[in-house]
């Protein structure tokens, strides 16, 4: 048994120089320049954009308060699941009442599912009865790539210091069935509760589920 542990130590040591080798390969597989996607526990990447209301939005301007980023696509069945059941709006309302800023982002490319112009986006907010601070059309996918957003919905919670505190799914039930929102644990609200209580976020990441972002 003892020799086994020794072996492991040796393996660990051997791996270290191998890391240098890996760099070489790693590059060939990165898909774009913005490979540095957001990481929980590190500063949330800053971005500047214009909201559908025509106002400028800069993330770093909102330090001092919690910000939620929600990737959305109104035609995606998972987004529909959370809006038709009122689950998303409920979470938005709860969060906004605690002073949280909620930003919905649409990264669908022109011609792809969920792509909308500002006017149509405003109409959808109206129809959904969404409670949000701002909505941003990111048709180049720049912000989406910056955060590594993969699905709709894909949720990010940024704390008052501008650190990414949560990234992942809206809740713990990835079924597309509408009745599954009941009884599911909402990770975004849980993260907000942890942050306002001054605690570490218990579930800081989860597997995002839903439709792929239509870059």
């Amino acid at each position: 048994m003892k020799s086994f542990f020794t072996l492991f130590g040796a393996v660990a040591l051997l791996l270290t120089p191998a890391a240098a080798n890996a760099e070489m390969y790693g590059e060939t597989h990165s898909k774009d320049d913005t490979h540095t996607s957001a990481q929980v526990g590190q500063a949330a990447p800053d971005f500047e954009a214009t909201t559908i209301a025509g106002e400028p939005f800069k993330l770093s301007d909102h330090k001092g308060g919690i910000v939620v980023l929600e990737w959305t696509n109104h035609e995606c069945p998972y987004v529909i699941k959370h809006y038709d059941t009122g689950n998303m709006q409920g979470a938005q309302k709860t969060a906004m009442e605690k002073g949280v800023k909620w930003v919905s982002i649409v990264s669908s490319a022109p011609g792809k599912q969920g792509h909308v112009d500002n006017a149509k986006a405003a109409e959808i907010v109206e129809e959904q009865n969404a409670h949000i601070t701002a909505k941003i059309i990111d048709e180049s996918g720049e912000i989406g790539h910056l955060y590594g957003a993969k699905t709709t919905p894909h949720m990010y919670v940024i704390d008052a210091e501008g650190t990414l505190a949560y990234a992942g799914a809206i809740d713990d039930n990835s079924s597309p069935r509408h009745d599954t929102v009941e009884g599911a644990t909402n990770y975004v609200l849980a993260a907000i509760d942890d942050l306002t209580a001054g605690q570490a976020v218990q579930v800081a990441s989860s597997a995002p589920y839903g439709c792929s972002v239509k870059y």
């Binding site: 599912q113 069935r177 439709c211 792929s212 239509k214």
Partner: peptide, 14 residues
Amino acid sequence: TEALVCKDICIPEF
């Protein structure tokens, strides 16, 4: 049974 079936778009089917 339920499956998410996707091409460019996704449809949940039950």
